[in-house]
């Protein structure tokens, strides 16, 4: 079970250009993060706190394969995303960065500011403000292991170290 975080709620089809605008892609990640989601909510980037939870509608993360779309969220302190559905490449990217992305039909029930915690292994999301629990797709073991390791790089590091130790 994760720590509790405050929900920031967005609509359908939040795209990677909104998350990581192309105009700032060649610059440093910190600059890109300042512009994260500014086209939909200019208050988000300046105010989001460590541990806050992003809640979206359908197709969260549609668009480009740029993983900076996940990286800026992580830099801003977000470790958990809940949405009705995620775009495929974005979903892979979140797990690769050790960020939990949970697809949940009840995501729409979450209101801005609700206190949310999650259990990715069991596929449960708890809304402490509303006193509700929602079911979501659990992450399969092999992917959960990678997320717990902190992402794909950390996961590979561990695996390569194990391989070296066995040689």
């Amino acid at each position: 079970m994760s720590d509790t975080g405050k929900a920031w709620v967005f609509g359908d089809n939040i795209d990677t250009d909104a998350l990581a605008p192309g105009l700032y892609m060649k610059g440093p990640l910190s600059t890109l993060a300042e512009h994260c989601l500014e086209v939909v909510d200019p208050d988000f980037a300046p105010n989001v706190q460590q541990g806050d939870v992003i809640v979206g509608g359908n197709n969260f993360g549609i668009g480009s394969s740029r993983e900076q779309a996940v990286e800026v969220l992580k830099l801003l302190g977000v470790r958990t995303l809940v949405a009705k559905s995620f775009a495929g490449i974005f979903f892979r990217n979140t797990l690769n960065f050790g960020v939990v992305a949970l697809a949940c039909d009840d995501a729409w029930k979450i209101r801005p500011g609700d206190q949310i915690s999650t259990d990715p292994a069991k596929g449960k999301i708890t809304n402490h403000t509303a006193g509700e629990t929602y079911n979501c797709d659990p992450l399969p073991d092999q992917l959960l292991e990678m997320v717990i390791d902190g992402g794909l790089v950390e996961h590979l590091e561990k695996k390569l170290a194990k391989k070296d130790a066995n040689q």
Binding site: G88, N93, N96, F97, L152, L156, L160
Partner: peptide, 19 residues
């Protein structure tokens, strides 16, 4: 043929595999 992010790509470059 499908698109992946850079970390996924790095995983492919190291292992020659992906899921």
């Amino acid at each position: 043929m499908f698109g992946v992010g850079a970390t996924d790509m790095a995983g492919v470059l190291v292992t020659g595999q992906t899921w």
